[in-house]
């Protein structure tokens, strides 16, 4: 067998591919489910924190800033390990899925808060003053005038950050979640053939390549006029 044949037999083995494709597809849906849960929880929590922060309550703001800094500084895998391997010591067991979801949601929350907050503060004071001078209350000014401008500003960085964190779903394989990478690794160890990894890589490309290209588009679409 030539080297090339051996290579094909290893990485593009049709028999192995056929055998493990269903597992990878299951993993594919699980990855999407996990990603969707993370995005929903993370963005909602981050936005909520940003709104809370705009109330300007000093002690609360310090707490928010600390939490945000904490989850920006810690590696996601460390948080996952802490939740999955550490919490049982406190008599609390999380499933791998729950641990990965919670950890990545917290990370996304932190980045989302930071980005939204920067967007809110970037809206000029004059906008607040103009709206308040026409008799709008704090809440109306915030939701009708300030937030829409902030949202537009934060869409490119938020999109990129969300994509990056969502790719972190692969970390769930470390805590035995059979998402794409987990399913692929299991496949490799059963079949002694790396084709499941090839399938896994393709599955990630199918999932994320369109998203990355979309991110590129978003960046130019919402580009700043210089």
């Amino acid at each position: 067998m030539s080297n090339w044949d051996r290579f094909l037999d290893s990485f593009f083995n049709a028999r192995v591919a056929a055998e493990y494709l269903p597992k990878i597809i299951e993993g594919f849906w699980l990855t999407i489910l996990l990603a969707a849960c993370i995005i929903l929880a993370g963005v909602a929590a981050g936005l909520a924190l940003a709104v809370l922060r705009s109330l300007g309550i000093r002690v609360l703001n310090w707490a928010i800033i600390f939490v945000v800094d904490l989850f920006r500084a810690l590696p996601p895998l460390v948080i996952i390990a802490l939740l999955y391997f550490g919490l049982p010591a406190a008599g609390l067991s999380l499933s791998g899925f729950a641990a990965a979801w919670l950890a990545l949601s917290l990370v996304l929350m932190a980045f989302t808060e930071e980005i939204f907050w920067a967007g809110i503060t970037a809206v000029p004071k004059g906008q607040w003053e103009a709206a308040r001078s026409t008799g709008l209350g704090f809440l109306d000014t915030f939701t009708l005038v300030v937030l829409p401008q902030a949202v537009r500003m934060v869409i490119p960085p938020l999109t990129n950050r969300t994509i990056a964190i969502t790719k972190g779903t692969a970390l769930a394989s470390v805590v035995a979640v059979q998402e794409i990478l987990g399913a692929a690794q299991a496949g490799v160890s059963f079949s002694f053939n790396p084709t499941p990894l090839t399938l896994g890589a393709v599955a990630y490309l199918v999932l994320f390549l369109p998203v990355v290209i979309l991110g590129r588009w978003v960046e130019t679409r919402f580009a700043w006029k210089r």
Partner: peptide, 8 residues
Amino acid sequence: FRSLPPLV
């Protein structure tokens, strides 16, 4: 290489 998760 931006589409593949680093761990993958």
